[in-house]
Nucleic acid binder design. Structure first.
Lengths: 112, 112
DNA sequence: ATCATGTTTCAAGAGTAGTTGAATCATTGA
DNA sequence: TCAATGATTCAACTACTCTTGAAACATGAT
């Protein structure tokens, strides 16, 4: 009953489950397709460069961001599809087994 | 630049970042307002009762589920608002800083 | 070439999370 | 009251994650 997709999604969630990594992903999500360089990401974050690099690697391994060298800099971008897949896996089947809707914000938004 | 809300959301994500807990939450989300008892949750999961209890406690502490004794059983329910707040915190500001939209599935769905 | 900047890699240590088995608590029915 | 079922608590151990400091690599400018 624990599906392989749960195992995978759990790993992806673990990658998000750190203040620095979450802040990074959120900023990349806000930034949209252009993304941001490692330096831009680290600048307001009060984290040493090696620590930031560690976290960026985690996010990359989890498939949540991509990286690409641009001359001296390395540019990171959010992988939007992966993020939206994750969200969908989490709440996509909201109250589908229930007669009662779960509320006005329900992602399934099947209102009478 | 790491906001307190990031710290909190990271903890909530950590609570979701385990296959058993994710499977539990997903089933509670599907189940809707009626929820499920601990026994119902554990039955298809191949986890010992004490381990399940440990995970349910984690989810409760994280504010993702509520529990309520009903006679012999204990019934768990998803806290939908918390979950949706979390999702919103993650992707709610999608590509707001960018000229280019991030894609057709963008939560902000501002299409020309 | 050399140096400065941006970024990653490596090794070591501290702290935290997850599993297990045994014991305990709560409720129901005989 | 006693036994059975549902669920939680406790203690101990293993494994993993995160941080740190030092070193290394890549690029661009002098």
């Amino acid at each position: 009953m624990i599906e392989p997709t749960d195992e995978l999604a759990a790993k992806t969630l673990a990658a998000l489950a750190h203040p620095v990594r979450l802040a990074v992903v959120r900023r990349l999500v806000e930034a949209g397709p252009p993304g941001l360089t490692a330096g831009q990401l680290g600048e307001p974050l009060d984290v040493s460069p090696n620590t930031l690099s560690f976290h960026l690697q985690k996010l990359t391994q989890a498939g949540l961001v991509t990286s690409r060298r641009e001359g001296q800099y390395i540019r990171y971008r959010a992988r939007f599809d992966e993020l939206l897949d994750l969200v969908d896996h989490l709440v996509g089947a909201c109250c589908s087994e229930s007669r009662d809707a779960c509320g006005p914000r329900c992602p399934a938004s099947r209102r009478p």
